[in-house]
Nucleic acid binder design. Sequence first.
DNA 1: CGACCATTTGATATGGATCAAGCGATGTGG
DNA 2: CCACATCGCTTGATCCATATCAAATGGTCG
Lengths: 234, 234
Amino acid sequence: MSQQMSHQITISSTRGEDRSKSGRGLANGIGIALLDDHPELCGPSMPFDRNAEIYGEGEPADYVYKLVSGAVRTYRVLSDGRRQIGAFYLPGDVFGLELGADHSSSAEAIVDSKVVLVRRNTLLNVSQRSSDVARELLAITAQELRRAQDHTLLLIKSAQERVAAFLLEMAQRRSNSLAVELPMSRQDIADYLGLTIETVSRTLTQLKDDATIQLLASRRIALRNREALSELNG
Amino acid sequence: MSQQMSHQITISSTRGEDRSKSGRGLANGIGIALLDDHPELCGPSMPFDRNAEIYGEGEPADYVYKLVSGAVRTYRVLSDGRRQIGAFYLPGDVFGLELGADHSSSAEAIVDSKVVLVRRNTLLNVSQRSSDVARELLAITAQELRRAQDHTLLLIKSAQERVAAFLLEMAQRRSNSLAVELPMSRQDIADYLGLTIETVSRTLTQLKDDATIQLLASRRIALRNREALSELNG
DNA sequence: CGACCATTTGATATGGATCAAGCGATGTGG
DNA sequence: CCACATCGCTTGATCCATATCAAATGGTCG
């Protein structure tokens, strides 16, 4: 933290698709209440450029983050460079909440993003007095746990099943009724699903050929047949 | 819950290796304090036979569990029968703590086991009054989250790396200085690592041939060369 | 001893990775 | 405004790690 926290200026060469038009992904409604009900907890809203690091693995976890706009990925890397994306966060989501002193993952902005920072100590202090806040912290953590468990289950499935599950997940979180807007690259998707970009790409074209989806643009996908996707999802 | 909860009698045809001799695996020391400091929370200690279900996915999560002796696996199954083991629990570990109303996984005794039950409501009520207890709940959940994240990272590795990581994990939790005692079958290991039993078996023989480990018995493994294992671990 | 179950070992198949082009947008400089 | 470089994505050809299928071995218990 700290140094990259200071001099971020939004250049915002935003390419249309970047800014989430919905403004509020429904990902974890929990986090919204937490900070909305206690505005005194909120620090400033900070802008991060596309691909900017928000925090790094192993750095002291002094803040908890709430995404206002844009999109964020958290990930870990193995010594040989393999990268595992643990989660994607959309506006309204809270991330970076750790129990230990240090962050267990790194976080980066996927597109130009705005993030509200909350001092962890402040939050923990308040949670000692307010059992509501304590409950919310537990809720956020438990939800993250659930997400991680689901992710684990994903990783034992076939490529088709993983991609189908990913599309359904994104559709649910960022439902536009028309199409799913994906802020992330194929590489990000691949690293989230434990596949290669080639396999992700091939699987998508396969689903397109099956008339299960429609590729409106590479990051704009219409789900033509959710039934089929759900069946693939097991 | 409920019905399988009532008439479990320990037949205890314990096969020597079954009962953890240490009596207190060091897995999550946190949970120990939680219940030891608040004995009034503890329900009765219940015995479960080998392979008995402790709770099932989707059932109401009315209890939180603390393992006294034996070993437990939690898992989820896909519609076609594939099983993903999410975690192994050893004596001293707390499991089954959920935020939602229902259990997200099933839990079974791997060997004859004893488990202390705590009513979830009681625990949540106490946590409203005692911020210490609230903090412990958060700690246990956060630790589970960390464990799940580590598990995810495991699943993108090669078979050798997964097996090596598994052995190191078990050695750390159940260190005997002489050998690692594995309460679980090869099938359990395979389902934990996202591999087949054949691959697990072959990988173990390979490590044996490399003189990295020694197979004292199929469930009793000596780590000859931890360095090599750690390197494999990435 | 004989049956059963867990584990190992062997032979073959295959899904996804890897290596290698091609292609289509977006942006740049002439 | 158009050639051209760049980047992200797709498509194709081949390879390999692990799955699958099948059988042998070994330990445990009645």
